[in-house]
């Protein structure tokens, strides 16, 4: 067999918790096998040896929150054949996108009280709002199984199999009792993309939406059901506004909830 050139991997970090990068190192059983098949050219969290681009595959963690990072992501794009975002920060702006809903004037006043110390944008935005993204891995954090699927797909030059259906489908397959129907526990599973393994319902709690919206979410219907369980408008809005608050379908769902009437 011909000695194929190993694809060159780079892993980049923007505003994030480092958890999705850690998922690469958490592929314990497969890590050394991957390192055999892929050249780890630039992965600062794991190696002090850094090779210049171009790179065949760039994994991008984190959202864009500073002017410098808005510039840097363009450089990353220019050096990357495939650019794949990993996790909710890179894909939807992450939990730090909650700043996008803050009182901007108040926020600005607070943030820029020491402008000489801190440089930050008033928004946290996903990578796709800045450059073309080839593929997105969802999750807070990403799933190791999906990460492995991505490596396999790149190595065999095929499209990865990443389902866009809801957590409910996976939850039924796992044999969980529905927490929403059977226990009246608020659950975002019906509108959230699968990939996590439906772990929250397996632990008797409702899904909190860390994989972001599924392909065809009916948030209006779910919001009605959740309100019927007794969730207040404030609680409901916060439910959609966590790690994927900036994802369009969740943003719209939160925006659609009527203001609480003063008591």
């Amino acid at each position: 067999m011909a000695d194929l050139r190993r694809p060159r991997l780079a892993v980049w970090k923007f505003a994030s918790c480092d958890g999705c990068q850690l998922s690469v190192l958490d592929l314990e059983d497969d890590l050394l096998a991957i390192a055999d098949r892929v050249e780890i050219a630039n992965f600062r969290e794991a190696s002090s040896a850094v090779a210049d681009g171009p790179y065949d595959l760039s994994l991008v963690e984190g959202s864009i929150t500073t002017p410098e990072d808005a510039r840097r992501i363009r450089e990353v794009r220019a050096e990357s054949r495939l650019l794949v975002t990993i996790g909710a920060c890179a894909t939807a702006g992450g939990i730090q996108a909650l700043r996008n809903f803050a009182d901007v004037e108040e926020f600005r006043r607070i943030v820029y009280a020491r402008p000489e110390y801190i440089q930050t944008l008033t928004t946290s935005t996903p990578i796709r709002e800045h450059v073309t993204v080839d593929l997105e891995l969802r999750g807070c954090p990403i799933s190791k199984a999906q990460l492995l699927e991505l490596f396999n797909a790149v190595l065999f030059d095929r499209a990865p199999n990443l389902p866009g259906e809801s957590v409910c489908i996976e939850c039924k397959r796992r044999g969980n009792v529905c927490v929403l129907v059977a226990r009246g526990t608020p659950c975002l599973g019906p509108v959230t993309q699968t990939g996590c393994g439906a772990i929250c319902p397996a632990f008797h709690r409702g899904c909190y939406g860390c994989f972001g919206p599924q392909d065809t979410p009916n948030a209006a219907s779910l919001s009605e059901a959740l309100a019927a369980l007794g969730m207040s408008p404030g609680e409901l809005r916060r439910f959609y506004r966590t790690f994927n608050a900036g994802a369009p379908a969740f943003r719209a769902a939160a925006d659609a909830i009527a203001e609480e009437r003063p008591a």
Binding site: F14, A15, S16, C17, D18, G19, C20, Q21, L22, T65, T66, D69, G94, I95, Q96, L98, R99, A102, F107, I110, V111, I118, T120, S124, C140, P141, Y208, E235, R238, T242, F243
Partner: peptide
């Protein structure tokens, strides 16, 4: 490392959300 302002967005969130929200400060020691 860009500031992410956790202490800001925690204001106005439910007390019950603190474990899940603050875990996202660090993926190494959630």
């Amino acid at each position: 490392e860009p500031p992410r302002f956790f202490e800001a967005f925690l204001r106005g969130r439910s007390y019950a959300e603190a474990p899940d929200v603050t875990a996202r400060i660090c993926g190494i020691c959630p």
